[in-house]
């Protein structure tokens, strides 16, 4: 049978070949479209449906004059400018929420950046020395349970200014998980890598950059991820008390002027920003520690 098939094919060879060439191209497009469609159906549709249902429930339960909270349609009616344009500037205190989020993010950048540098260094030292670990760990375990805002009065007294105080609150909130995770990561460096470093006679600084940081990167970044989440929690709370331009103060200000719909819009901004920060640090961590975790 195969022999006959072989014999017959040479004759009409060009035609089927052309067909075979064109087939995959036409077959691929719908396939790709189907993939996109499936991704949309599996990943995008469920959260969108849930969101719509939640908004509907919210709309139904809070519409009517007697309820104390605004319904989604009220939010849209009264705070449309905040939703539509995040970056408007009408005056020094009348600016879009995007600007306010950026102001808060700048404080987080200072406080969290400082916490990351100091936290990784302190964590590295603690991870390397069992004695230091024994000495500092109990103190850190106690300090890390102190709520962020509890540091604020002390901080205000020390810095006598709201801006550095807010940054300090972020720093002191974010640093504990960074220290603790880095120390754990450094302790988990395999003895093999330490032996390699010993044979090569790497000095402390070379060991830190070439072995310790890459080896402990997954631990360090899980600490940084927790830290950045806590920072964002802390800045919103701290700004409510210290005032200024940030998103936290905006909420407090809106509450004082009974603009409840503005607060709801601000909450969405805060939530989305926190989510983005978390994913961003997670993504950087994956890129940096590529190869370490395999």
């Amino acid at each position: 049978m195969s022999v006959t098939a072989l014999k017959t094919t040479p004759g009409p060879a060009p035609k089927p070949a052309a067909q075979v060439m064109s087939l995959p191209v036409t077959a691929k497009r719908p396939q790709r479209l189907a993939l996109v469609g499936r991704f949309a159906a599996e990943r995008i549709a469920p959260p969108v449906v849930v969101l719509i249902v939640l908004l509907l429930i919210w709309q139904v339960s809070f519409s009517g004059g007697t309820s104390g909270l605004p319904a989604p349609t009220d939010v849209w009616d009264q705070s449309r400018d905040l939703i539509v344009d995040p970056f408007f500037v009408y005056g020094t205190q009348d600016i879009g929420l995007g600007w306010r989020v950026l102001t808060s993010l700048e404080r987080v950048a200072y406080g969290f950046g400082l916490a990351a540098v100091v936290g990784v260094l302190v964590g590295a030292i603690l991870g390397q020395s069992a004695l230091m670990m024994r000495g500092f760990d109990p103190i850190f375990q106690v300090l890390r349970t102190v709520p962020p805002l509890a540091w604020l009065p002390i901080s205000l007294a020390a810095f006598m200014d709201s801006r550095p105080s807010a940054i300090f609150v972020i720093f002191i909130t974010a640093i504990w998980p960074i220290i603790i995770n880095t120390a754990a990561g450094v302790r988990a460096i395999p003895q093999d890598y330490r032996n390699v470093a010993a044979v090569l006679r790497l000095n402390q600084i070379e060991f830190f950059w070439k072995i310790m940081v890459p080896s402990a990167a997954p631990y360090i970044f899980s600490g940084l991820r927790i830290g950045v989440g806590l920072s964002w929690l802390a800045i919103v709370a701290a700004e409510m008390l210290t005032g200024g331009v940030g998103i936290g103060f905006f909420i407090w200000d809106a509450w004082n002027s009974s603009r409840l719909t503005d607060i709801i819009v601000a909450l969405v901004y805060i939530g989305v920003t926190g989510f983005v920060l978390d994913r961003l640090v997670g993504w950087i961590g994956r890129v940096v520690s590529r190869g370490t975790t395999e």
Partner: peptide, 19 residues
């Protein structure tokens, strides 16, 4: 003390996986 004049080939290769 350890040193590069006595290089070791370790049992489980001990290559740094991120390099």
């Amino acid at each position: 003390a350890p040193g590069p004049d006595r290089a070791v080939v370790f049992q489980n290769h001990s290559l740094l996986p991120w390099l």
